[in-house]
Amino acid sequence: MDFDDTPDEAAWRAEVRAFLTAHRDEHAADPRAWQALLYDAGFVGVTWPADAGGRGGTPMQQAIVDQETARLGLPALINLIGIGMCGPTVIVHGSDDQKRRYLKRLLRADDLWCQLFSEPAAGSDLAALRTRAVRDGNGGWRVTGQKVWTTLAHLADYGILLTRTNADVPKHRGLTMFVVDMKAPGVTVRPLRQMNGESHFNEVFFDDVAIPDTERLGEPGQGWTVALTTLMNERLSLGGGGTGVGAKPETVARHVAERIGGLSPDRQVLARQQLGRGYVAALGARYTGYRQLSRISHGELPGPEASAGKLSGTRSARDLADLAVRVLGEDAAVAGGTWQNLQAVLPGMAIAGGSDQVLRNIIGERVLGLPAEPRVDKGAPA
């Protein structure tokens, strides 16, 4: 593992840090305007090809932008799903016309995007989805079905939509992906209230929604291949590059240190033990991310660190948030507090980008070489 920047990386970090420090107070007024400002400065879509509206830079340059953003406590970009998942899918599988119409506007947050994959009966087993797209006789498609847990669908202008177009073939081979206008007739978005009182997730209904064939991503029946492009980018974006998930362990340690004196001696011992375990786990996740960055910096492809980093990062973040809330004592009952809010959000993070169980299977099968889980329905029609 290499902890030091190369000279080029150090120069890039200095440029990014100077810009973010100079403009850090401008993010609060308008998240879209903040993203547009960063894009115009060359700090959004760093790794995207220049002909797709990006900078044509390296993954390490993007990681440095993410690190410096986290260091200053600045919020994530409002269109992070579009940048990390939807846009890369359009780059790989979209037509030249789609790339021209969508990508630059996505990077500047002129349009917000969402990812329409999960369904009530197709979460971890995504290929079991039932939302149907059928030919309409005029060269287009008609879509009927339901999606759920769709982040930011209530704000999105567009989304990438995975549908079933053939129910007579094995379920992985009967899927097709589209770009869908979230304001089109027949699209209904209903926010789902989370236990922290917010509504970032949504259920989305499609009632005979018309989609032109020009909005298809990839060939009919090749939607699973297209979806894998999205999922690989999602897992990498959530796997961490040393920035971690949730609160920084140093922040939790400071919070506990300020309040531990009010606990009984026995509770002080337990709090210190839990803090130690959580802190070590968080550092393990952080340095796993650094190992991934070292490989990227040397021109290598990232390995299983993304799945391992995401799995361990969410686990340690939940443990530290639980500890912080317990140390608060009676104050933990106050709704809307920072720690309580983080505690309520993190279970969703453990599902997004692959549930803990799915990630354990990936690590077991692809890293440890364990036998694959039985999948008796893999070759069966949906």
Rank of each mutant, 00 (worst) to 15 (best):
E215M: 11
R216D: 05
R216P: 08
L217Q: 08
E219C: 06
G221R: 10
V226C: 09
A227C: 14
A227N: 13
A227E: 10
L228M: 15
L228V: 12
T229C: 13
L231T: 03
M232Y: 10
M232N: 14
E234C: 12
L236E: 14
G239L: 09
T243K: 06
V245N: 04
G246M: 12
A247L: 13
K248F: 12
P249M: 02
T251D: 15
T251K: 12
A253E: 13
E258F: 03
E258P: 00
I260E: 00
G262Q: 00
G262Y: 00
G262H: 03
S264Q: 01
P265S: 10
P265N: 01
R267D: 08
R267I: 00
R267M: 03
Q268W: 01
V269Y: 02
V269D: 07
Q273V: 09
L275C: 05
R277Y: 04
Y279F: 15
A282Q: 09
A285K: 10
A285C: 11
R286C: 14
R291G: 13
L293I: 14
L293R: 12
S294W: 05
I296A: 14
G299L: 09
G299V: 08
E300R: 09
P302Q: 06
P304Y: 06
P304L: 12
P304F: 06
E305C: 05
S307R: 01
L311N: 06
G313V: 07
T314D: 13
T314W: 14
R315Y: 08
A317M: 01
R318C: 03
A321Y: 05
D322G: 01
